[in-house]
Design a protein around this nucleic acid. Structure first.
Lengths: 247, 247
DNA sequence: CGTTATATTGATCATCTTCAATGAGTGTGG
DNA sequence: CCACACTCATTGAAGATGATCAATATAACG
């Protein structure tokens, strides 16, 4: 574990800047925030159900997923997190974790002690409010996923998931020319969509042959944004992303 | 709209007391909180997608549900709220609502202005933290619903929903002798579970004939808590209810 | 270059949907 | 007090989306 006083803090600042304008004092406080960075390989558990962590973590690079496992051993991916996200922010106020969080690609994570976050929120209420807001945005995404999984057919579910990732990655500058890296296996798409891997494969083939996506390795290109949006019944309101961040 | 300076405030105090011990100063602040009570009939919209409310509401009596509608007109119930809940607390920090909230029984609601809540959170950070925590608990429930709808069969989904409502109602004193009022139509259970009303009916019959529930009007009795818990793969961890509240 | 993970294909099966009709319960007004 | 209307619950039959099982092809990786 190496102490890095730069990239992770800068990224955190950029994240909050996308929510509201920081004062120089607030910015300095964030710059002084002790963050321990750590590299983690693919498919490693970061935290799991029942844990009582004393810290949160921030994603600098890579993707993680939140998941729960049913008594029958079936896994539901609840959320996919991308650089800039703080997947277990909830642990600040909920003692016991009710979820597992794992890496789905190699990740660079920044760990921040709860004590430091409490202090930060206390001294700079606007930062506290922004972090609260952050948890609310993620809750909003859970709600949309509920609609997606509860009411849409497999084809739309997968299209919707692709649309969401596209926009969220765009908001952090990871999309170029309608193309982005989506380093997620079909089995993971399946667990995130509540369908089987076999069926995901068939749906992806349909999406390709309908011209909604084209893939090369794990690169996805979206030739016609309007069309896939329609197929996925995608309306980005629920992401609560500022327009500016998508320009 | 009548101004009531008693019941709603008391209930809010009781709610927060279940999270942490209030100081007398905090309690007084809550007692002084202006709350406008309002009675609303069944099946009325309270707020809807796109609204930008300047207030939150607190449920004193009755049930409400949060729902979203797909482009194809299918409705997903995202959450069911019971007395003591603040269903749209998120609007404090997210300008535009991404959900609809409606009554599913006649309700007595208490409206609290955002401005007053901001002030309260500012002056009494522990109350702010408790409200933040409240939104996190609801997010946790969304996550469990995702697992429920994404990975479990219809029988388990309905059993799980019944278990959850039972415990949440118990926590606010609305369960007696394993019996409680669940004033929800089968169509609503269907929309909450991602199955059709017809199938809900069949599942309920199965639950009855398996001895997991018995119903009389909208009263549900659970003869064997262990058994239905198992059928629904129900583990109350995700509700983050203190043990004391269920004793 | 062998080994493992991931993607793809085919065939059969089942849960749940859809459609359509009937029955029961609740409330209202004449 | 009954008739009517309305909502909600229940039943039956047929159909479809997606699951399951099993095998193979392809890609990734040390």
């Amino acid at each position: 574990m190496i102490k890095a006083l730069h990239s992770a803090n800068d990224m955190m600042i950029r994240k909050l800047e996308s929510i509201f304008k920081l004062t120089s004092e607030e910015e300095q406080a964030l710059r002084d925030l002790p963050i321990q960075t750590k590299d983690i390989a693919t498919n490693q558990n970061i935290v799991k159900v029942g844990d009582q962590p004393g810290q949160c973590f921030f994603i600098s690079e890579g993707f993680t997923c939140v998941h729960k496992v049913s008594a029958e051993g079936k896994r539901q991916i609840i959320a996919i997190h991308v650089p800039g996200d703080i997947p277990d922010l909830q642990s600040l106020h909920l003692q016991v974790l009710d979820i597992n969080i794992s890496t789905i690609t190699p990740c660079k994570l920044g760990f921040i002690k709860h004590a430091d976050l409490y202090q930060l929120c206390d001294r700079y209420p606007r930062i506290g409010a922004a972090l609260w807001r952050e948890t609310l945005v993620h809750a909003s995404i859970f709600r949309e996923w509920l609609l997606n999984i509860g009411q849409r057919d497999a084809y739309s579910r997968v299209a919707h998931l692709i649309c969401e990732l596209m926009l969220r990655l765009k908001a952090v500058g990871l999309v170029e020319e309608q193309t982005f890296k989506m380093p997620i296996t079909q089995a993971e798409i399946a667990d995130a969509s509540g369908i089987t891997p076999v069926h995901v494969n068939r749906v992806l083939q349909a999406l390709r042959s309908d011209g909604l996506i084209s893939t090369h390795r794990q690169q996805i290109t979206i030739p016609d944004w309007e069309k896939i949006q329609q197929a996925g019944e995608f309306d980005p309101l629920y992401l609560h992303i500022k327009q500016e961040a998508l320009a």
